[in-house]
Write a protein that binds this DNA or RNA. Structure first.
Lengths: 264, 264
DNA sequence: CGTACCTTTGACTGTCGTCAAGGACGGTGG
DNA sequence: CCACCGTCCTTGACGACAGTCAAAGGTACG
């Protein structure tokens, strides 16, 4: 598999979905991937987890389908989306290496959303049963697995804040910075990277239209905050992006007594 | 404590924070409150949980504070909010009877948001340590506690969908219906109830301004969908509210191949 | 080489935020 | 009891940000 499709990271994301592709991962490997502490006991554990390989466009699970697995991304890029009753898609997250997805199925034993591969993907399967059993066997793991869920929750909260109170420009800026951080964490360049989603998908994720996203990117380009050529992004002024003024500052008003606004 | 403040539910919410107020709850009681299955073993458990009483305006926990407890609402109404670096408040949820809050602290052992009582509140304290230990002792509980988290997650996802793709009118309508359902679940009237938050707080929660909320409510009143007099709501046409047209239908466009839109 | 999709850009429109004024309610103190 | 105040709610007029509609060029792929 010499070439990846367009969602290939220029730097070397290719190694993530390397040619041979592992078939099994140990518990310790999975923990490391999830940035969880790996104790001796865990390192000694002989549980193995199966890998699955998906290609662009393939669906890993759909909404409503019985919940049996958690999924850990070993490589590749995906999108999780809810499809409402009218068939409208709302993208919830773009899982990538080190992320877990399928979590929302725990509640009523059915997945609440669907997840689709946006590039070649290497996914580790974690049967929910195994997951809970391991939590019981290794107490340190138990707490950790709550953390994984909690992490998800924090991410959603951040989304809510973003959607609820930021201008279109600020949302796009933040999104790019998040991607940048994420890529940097994974060992890629946080400065230069390729978007693996379309403008429409970005807009959908951010609660904007594709036109607004496109215009905003053009504006950033114009201002010299970044350079953009189709999917290729080069972040030039991260600070400028980070400090982009928030929403036309209405929402401040609810915060009165509790938090004296230090700023103008 | 004969009278509750304005957030009192006309029907009889008073009993929720009854005069004496319990001091301790058993594990079985807490599980029941959380709508988790109660097994024999759990019923036999002798762990007891302490209650705390808060009055309007008191803060239960703040952001950044070390995480030690989970909180279960036994009675009363609260709000959880994130305060960003500029002192802007973003309301994340309005916890009420049967809800858990403080969950977002698991991740990095610090609460990510603050929670304030909006009425007299009766809160059950669940030390996180106890929580995880119980999960280990009763395997059925372990799964259940994941469910509690997962439930949270679903709620956040629904919020995201709402904020990302619904018009102001639809957001307000949905919000009212959610409240209605919630009250009905708790044994109050789902039709007639009192809002326990200001317009500003509603707006903040929904990503709108207080003026927009006010105007929207007036419009619904005008249309006969409901009657509103300050905090007092009477839902007259739930169906009309439920089927309010979604956002100026752009976002549909991302959904093409995957989900052929069956509607017009 | 043609088709399908993605992206950009422009012109226009509408929803919702902004600013402002006025009224209702509830608590407090004279 | 009434005046006074702060907070909350409503309504109007206005404007802007972002959505809508449309057209055209670019890129990928068969």
């Amino acid at each position: 598999m010499p070439t990846l499709n367009e969602s290939d990271q220029s730097d070397g994301a290719a190694l993530v979905t390397s040619r041979s592709g592992k078939l099994w991962s140990t518990l310790a490997e999975v923990c490391a991937l999830l940035r969880l502490p790996v104790t001796h006991a865990i390192r000694a554990d002989d549980t193995h987890f199966h890998h699955m390989h998906y290609r662009t466009g393939q669906r890993i699970h759909s909404a409503g389908q019985p919940f049996e697995m958690l999924y850990v991304v070993h490589g590749g890029f995906l999108k999780s989306a809810m499809i409402d009753d009218l068939g409208n898609e709302q993208i919830l997250s773009f899982p990538m290496r080190g992320d877990v997805f399928g979590v929302d199925g725990m509640h009523n034993r059915r997945y609440g959303c669907e997840t689709v591969a946006m590039s070649s993907c290497d996914i580790i399967l974690v049967p929910f049963k195994t997951f809970t059993e391991l939590g019981k066997r290794y107490s340190e793991l138990d707490v950790s697995s709550y953390e994984v869920l909690s992490r998800h929750l924090m991410a959603e909260q951040a989304r809510v804040v973003s959607l609820g109170s930021l201008s279109a420009e600020a949302r796009v800026a933040r999104f790019l910075l998040q991607l940048s951080d994420r890529f940097a964490q994974l060992g890629f360049s946080g400065r230069r990277f390729n978007l693996f989603m379309t403008r429409a998908e970005m807009g959908n994720y951010l609660g904007l239209t594709l036109e607004t996203v496109s215009r905003t990117l053009s504006a950033f380009n114009e201002l010299g905050y970044l350079s953009v050529d189709m999917r290729a992004i080069d972040i030039l002024a991260p600070e400028a992006l980070r400090t982009l003024r928030r929403l036309p500052p209405s929402h401040q008003r609810t915060a009165r007594k509790t938090a004296p606004t230090g700023q103008q």
